[in-house]
């Protein structure tokens, strides 16, 4: 009887000790300010799901000594995390929401990093007959045909862009054909593929996953489909624990020459075309020309 208890408690104690020991070590590397500096980057699912961050962040850590904790969420949530001071830097693609956010004054600088474009993808059979039309025209046709359209529905940059396209087309998406996943780009593409529906995707995520999807690009290339990424530095105005030096280190680095070269090269080997166009220092109004 007592042996049982001894065994149980010995097990508990052993696990506890082992756990604490290792947890303490990793806590030290993850959060101990003197040893390793660590900043929080809130960014979009597209930069993670496409694999771009896996390429960039190790290089940044090597160059700057800053470790990065990445939170891949929708742009809406990323901006909210910045507003609350829970993130030090933002890499986002929801220009209208960003401009509004900058006006609040808690963010420092906002700089252009890169762009790619959105594509309207759908089943090969193309029941709404949108292939080759402009984005606004395509949205109108999808609404008229009432074919399944899968929306992100998560206040991400892609969702904001999609809502903009509907209003540009002058239609309000409503009804059982218009479905909202509330999930990231990867999942949303998958749902669209399974339901043979249409969806709006950034080109990078679509290309990175094209092999597993039954979706074709149907409408692309018009200026309304530009997808522009900015880096935003947060300041102490958002919260006492924000690290402006980390934010500046990251923002300076990602618009610098070595990161811009990595961005321009990313995906070339695997997809035959780069997934993003580096844009640091350019004038935003000249993009896509």
């Amino acid at each position: 009887m007592r042996r049982t208890l001894t065994v149980v408690f010995a097990w508990v104690a052993a696990v506890l000790l082992a756990g604490c020991g290792t947890a303490a070590t990793s806590g030290g590397t993850a959060s101990g300010p003197p040893a390793v500096k660590s900043l929080i980057l809130a960014t979009t699912t597209s930069t993670q799901d496409s694999g771009l961050l896996d390429e960039l962040l190790p290089a940044f850590t090597r160059d700057s000594g800053w470790q990065v904790k990445t939170l891949a969420v929708g742009s809406g949530q990323a901006i909210e995390l910045g507003r609350r001071g829970e993130a030090d830097a933002l890499l986002v693609h929801s220009p209208a929401a960003e401009t509004e956010f900058m006006a609040e004054g808690s963010a420092g600088s906002r700089r252009l990093v890169m762009h790619n474009d959105f594509v309207l993808v759908g089943p090969q059979a193309d029941p709404a007959d949108v292939k080759g039309t402009s984005s606004a025209e395509a949205m109108k046709k999808i609404e008229a045909a009432k074919v399944v359209f899968i929306s992100r529905g998560d206040d991400s940059g892609t969702h904001a862009k999609e809502k903009g396209l509907w209003s540009k087309a002058g239609v309000t998406p409503d009804g059982s054909w218009y479905q909202s996943t509330g999930q990231g780009m990867g999942e949303t593409l998958r749902v669209a593929s399974e339901k043979a529906g249409y969806t709006l995707s950034d080109r990078a995520t679509y290309l990175a996953q094209r092999g597993t999807l039954a979706l074709d690009v149907l409408s692309e290339g018009d200026p309304g489909l530009l997808n522009v990424y900015h880096v935003i530095e947060m300041t102490k105005k958002a919260g006492d624990l924000v690290q402006p030096d980390g934010a500046k280190a990251f923002a300076d680095w990602i618009v610098g020459p070595s990161a811009q070269r990595l961005i321009g090269e990313f995906g070339r080997a695997k997809f035959g075309q780069p997934l993003f166009t580096p844009d640091a220092g350019k004038d935003e109004s000249t993009l896509g020309e």
Partner: peptide, 20 residues
């Protein structure tokens, strides 16, 4: 554990300790 939360100063969020 948020920075703005009651024990935010410990910097525990996004660590294995927070998961435990």
């Amino acid at each position: 554990l948020w920075r703005s939360g009651p024990v935010g100063g410990l910097g525990l969020l996004y660590t294995p300790t927070a998961m435990v």
